[in-house]
Simulated scan of single mutants.
Amino acid sequence: MSLHESFNRSGFSKSVNSPAGRIFRLAAGTAFLLVGYQFRDRPLGILSMVWSIFPLSAGAFDICYISAALGGPLSGKKIRGSSGK
C-alpha cells in the first residue's frame, strides 16, 4: 500500500474530507484571515493572511493538499470514493 493510500484510508483523512471537515477548514481559514487582518501591520499578521489561502481554498473547492503532496488525488470526492476499496 502506498503512502497516499494509507493516508487516504486514515481516520484523519476521512474526517478532513467529510462535509464537516470542509466546514471546519472554511472556518479555520476565515479565522486565520481575520486574525491576520487584525494584525496586518506585523509580519505574522501578513503570514496569517497568506496561510489562510490554504484552508479556505481546500474547504471551498473540496481539495486535499496533503493527499496531493503524498502523490494521491487532489479531489476530496475522489478520496471519499476510493477510501472504501
Rank of each mutant, 00 (worst) to 15 (best):
32 F>H: 03
35 V>F: 13
15 S>L: 15
26 L>I: 14
21 G>P: 03
24 F>G: 02
25 R>T: 01
32 F>I: 05
22 R>P: 01
34 L>V: 14
28 A>D: 06
17 N>W: 02
34 L>R: 09
14 K>N: 10
9 R>A: 14
13 S>V: 02
12 F>G: 03
11 G>A: 11
28 A>Q: 07
9 R>L: 09
32 F>P: 01
16 V>K: 01
3 L>E: 14
20 A>L: 15
29 G>Q: 02
25 R>C: 00
4 H>G: 01
23 I>C: 08
35 V>D: 03
23 I>K: 14
21 G>I: 05
18 S>D: 10
6 S>G: 04
23 I>Y: 09
32 F>N: 01
4 H>P: 01
5 E>K: 12
9 R>C: 07
26 L>P: 01
15 S>W: 15
11 G>Q: 11
6 S>H: 08
8 N>H: 02
8 N>P: 00
6 S>W: 08
13 S>G: 06
11 G>N: 11
2 S>D: 14
32 F>K: 03
25 R>K: 15
15 S>V: 14
24 F>P: 00
13 S>R: 01
25 R>V: 03
13 S>W: 02
23 I>G: 08
23 I>Q: 13
35 V>S: 10
7 F>E: 03
17 N>H: 04
9 R>M: 09
31 A>I: 15
4 H>K: 03
21 G>H: 02
9 R>P: 00
8 N>Y: 01
16 V>H: 00
31 A>M: 15
34 L>W: 12
30 T>N: 11
19 P>G: 06
24 F>H: 02
35 V>H: 05
30 T>G: 14
7 F>P: 00
34 L>K: 07
9 R>W: 05
6 S>C: 02
10 S>Y: 06
8 N>L: 02
13 S>P: 02
12 F>D: 06
33 L>E: 04
14 K>F: 03
6 S>R: 13
23 I>R: 14
22 R>V: 06
29 G>F: 00
3 L>G: 04
9 R>V: 04
14 K>I: 04
26 L>Y: 04
14 K>L: 11
3 L>I: 12
21 G>D: 07
24 F>Q: 04
11 G>V: 07
27 A>T: 13
25 R>E: 03
22 R>D: 10
22 R>L: 13
5 E>I: 05
2 S>R: 10
